[in-house]
């Protein structure tokens, strides 16, 4: 495969990842959608207002890791989603592939089932996109 073809494939995959995040942002109450790598670095983000990406990236990884570990302590293996319910809204994080996590920040008026449904349906696609994106 030529380098140009690989570059185009990567570009279209990256733009599809952006479209997915934009779509998640269009759900009522969603204020930020981000993809975080295994070092806690925010690789893609769409948001309504300024957020400290370094801090949120590391925190999401830490919270997800801690939740997955506590699940393992009670014999639950394979953490599919961590939901953090706050007074002002929710933070939902879902693993994608190779340590990457998709995180959504919502306001209180977000419909949890709507956001969760969209996340659950989006993850298999993101997994495919990422495994191909990382392989290229």
């Amino acid at each position: 495969m030529s380098n140009i073809h690989l570059l185009n494939t990567r570009k279209s995959q990256s733009s599809e990842i952006d479209s997915i995040l934009r779509n998640l942002m269009s759900i009522q109450g969603v204020s930020a959608a981000a993809i975080i790598d295994n070092d806690g670095f925010v690789t893609h983000i769409h948001r309504d207002s300024e957020v400290n990406t370094d801090a949120i990236g590391a925190s999401v990884q830490v919270v997800f890791g801690a939740a997955a570990r506590s699940a393992a302590h009670v014999g639950h293996h394979g953490t599919n989603m961590v939901i953090c319910e706050n007074t002002e809204g929710y933070i939902l994080s879902t693993p994608i592939d190779a340590g990457f996590i998709l995180a959504l920040v919502t306001q209180r008026d977000a419909l949890l089932g709507r956001v969760r449904f969209e996340l659950k349906e989006t993850i298999p696609v993101l997994k495919k996109l990422f495994s191909s994106y990382l392989a290229n």
């Binding site: 990884q61 830490v62 890791g65 801690a66």
Partner: peptide, 9 residues
């Protein structure tokens, strides 16, 4: 404690 979250921390 943090599993995969450790390197980020």
């Amino acid at each position: 404690i943090l599993g995969q979250g450790a390197p980020s921390l």
